[in-house]
Simulated scan of single mutants.
Amino acid sequence: MKRYLNLLVLPAVLLAIWLLLNDSLSPGQIALGAILAVLLSWAASALRPLRSSPKHLATALRLIVHVAIDITKSNIAVARIVWLGRRAHATPGFIKIPLRIRDAHGLAALACIVTYTPGTVWSDYSDDDGLLTLHVLDLKDEEAWFQTIQQRYERPLMEIFE
């Protein structure tokens, strides 16, 4: 029963968005929206063969709070570097961080977290040895980056996705 309810979530959301965008509850708009919602849901299912089942909602919420705090701190640090220029003494560099996470959804979430954080760029990931190459705008303490990526981000993502 739960499987069938999950199949109806995307069409219901698409239908609701269709009706809101058209600002109409006429029978014609409902019928057209329902047909489009079912067809688009069916087409989208073929694009996503790998399914995910996240667990531990509390861990996910804590991770979201940590990421929001880190993004805010990073915005301030990058603004400081941009405003001060050479006086900021920024030391950009690359760092290789070994990762234990193998779930594709967890790696994608980690890539988003790193990319959303100003001053960091996900440069490369080797699937063979699990090495993440990260470019950091101000790389003064490599051990702090190891701790941040492995403990603050990777560990909760492993709890959520693996």
Rank of each mutant, 00 (worst) to 15 (best):
L8M: 13
A104L: 12
S123T: 15
V114R: 10
A77E: 15
L14C: 00
E162L: 04
N6P: 08
I69A: 15
H135S: 08
S45D: 08
F146C: 10
L40H: 06
E162P: 06
G85P: 06
E162Y: 00
A12Q: 07
P118A: 09
P27V: 15
V65Y: 13
M1R: 02
F161Y: 15
L47F: 02
L5A: 06
I149R: 04
L7E: 07
P49I: 03
G28K: 07
I35C: 07
R48T: 13
V78N: 01
L40F: 14
L15H: 14
L157C: 00
A43N: 09
E142N: 08
P98D: 07
V65T: 11
I35G: 09
L15E: 08
A111K: 12
R152P: 07
L157T: 00
I30G: 05
I30E: 04
H89T: 12
G33N: 05
A104H: 15
S123R: 15
A44C: 11
N22G: 09
P49G: 02
H105E: 08
L157D: 09
S53T: 11
I76P: 07
H66C: 12
A31T: 03
Q147P: 00
K2L: 05
L32M: 14
I71N: 13
L157K: 01
K96C: 12
R152E: 09
P27C: 02
T133H: 11
R62F: 00
Y153M: 05
M1H: 08
L132P: 06
L57C: 11
R102N: 12
P98C: 14
V121W: 11
D103L: 11
H56W: 07
